Amino acid sequence: MHMNSLPQHLRSEDRREFERLLDEVLRSAPHRPELAAVGRRLSPAQLRTMAIAASALITVAAAAEYQRYVRIRDELRHPEQASGAAGSAPAEPGPAAAELAAPHGAGAVAVVAVLAPLLSATAAAIFLLIGYILRSLDPRQPIAGTMLTAGWVFGALTVAALLVAAVGLLVTALRNGASPESRARDAATEEVARARAAWETALLERGILPFLKEALADHSHYTGSDHGGPEHQPD
């Protein structure tokens, strides 16, 4: 069997994870007393080839953890399938659905927050422009002062509207960041990480390490020497 081929019961991304764990164990073998014979009885390359060839047996030791990890990961990646499997009866609309069903509240506020600064700024520019033009033509015209006053009032309203709009956007961003959907997804992501860690630990402790120790022990018994040499035959 090719040393990079693994059985199909592991998905491709998980086959790479199996090889990564195996390579890490082999690299750290000098620091593991139970694998101290690596390099003397069998080389790391030989052990890697043997482990990948026997991966079907090795991964069975962590089958329960792997099934749980895959199930939770699939639920996170495809939540619509998980919700569809739970039942076909229509669920009662939750708070998020209620907000979507009544768009006039938040939608109207958003429209006002955008249009108010734009309209007030336009009005301020128009009044100020007309006021300064009239004053330049005839400084004694009272309407010029009225136009200028109105322009500065609308200018102040523009600043106030911009501040209100900024506060509204900030509140909306904070509300969306702390939405139930966002918190649920964060919790699901953490659960996937815990399930993956549990699978990797089980695969390492109950699968990879026992297989490598058994392979080294079998080879020592076969050669009859701790150093892997043949037994001395009497003349």
Score class of each variant (00 low, 15 high):
L157S: 05
A62K: 00
E92I: 10
A82H: 02
A91M: 11
L115A: 14
P139A: 13
I58R: 07
R77M: 13
A96S: 15
A150C: 12
G84Q: 15
Y66W: 02
F127E: 09
A89Q: 10
A108C: 07
E65S: 05
G105A: 13
V153Y: 09
D74V: 05
A62H: 08
A108K: 03
M50P: 02
S83R: 11
R41I: 14
Q141H: 13
R77Q: 13
L76H: 05
G39L: 01
A125C: 03
G105S: 09
A110R: 11
A54I: 05
Y69A: 07
Q81G: 00
A91I: 08
A150Q: 12
G145Q: 14
S120K: 01
A96K: 11
R48M: 03
S136Q: 10
R73N: 11
A156N: 07
G151H: 03
R135L: 15
Q81H: 12
A125L: 11
A53W: 10
L115R: 06
Y132W: 13
R71A: 14
D138P: 03
G151Q: 01
P90N: 01
A116W: 06
V111L: 14
V109P: 00
A63R: 06
G105P: 00
I72G: 00
P93D: 12
R41S: 08
A121F: 05
G105V: 12
L128I: 08
A144C: 10
A56S: 10
M147N: 11
P79A: 01
A62F: 01
L129Q: 12
R73H: 08
I72D: 04
L115M: 12
A161G: 05
S43N: 01
F127G: 03
S43D: 02
A97V: 01
E99F: 09
P44N: 01
I143S: 14
L134V: 14
A123T: 02
A64H: 00
A160G: 08
G105M: 09
P103M: 05
S120F: 15
L76C: 02
V111D: 09
A150G: 07
A97S: 12
A106M: 08
G155V: 04
A121H: 02
G94A: 10
V70I: 08
V70F: 02
P139D: 09
Q141A: 15
V112N: 01
L163F: 14
A101P: 00
T49E: 15
L42V: 02
Y69M: 13
S136W: 08
M147C: 15
R40L: 06
V159G: 00
G155A: 14
S55K: 04
A160T: 06
A51C: 06
A63G: 00
G155W: 05
V159F: 05
P103V: 03
L118P: 00
Y66L: 04
P139M: 05
A113I: 05
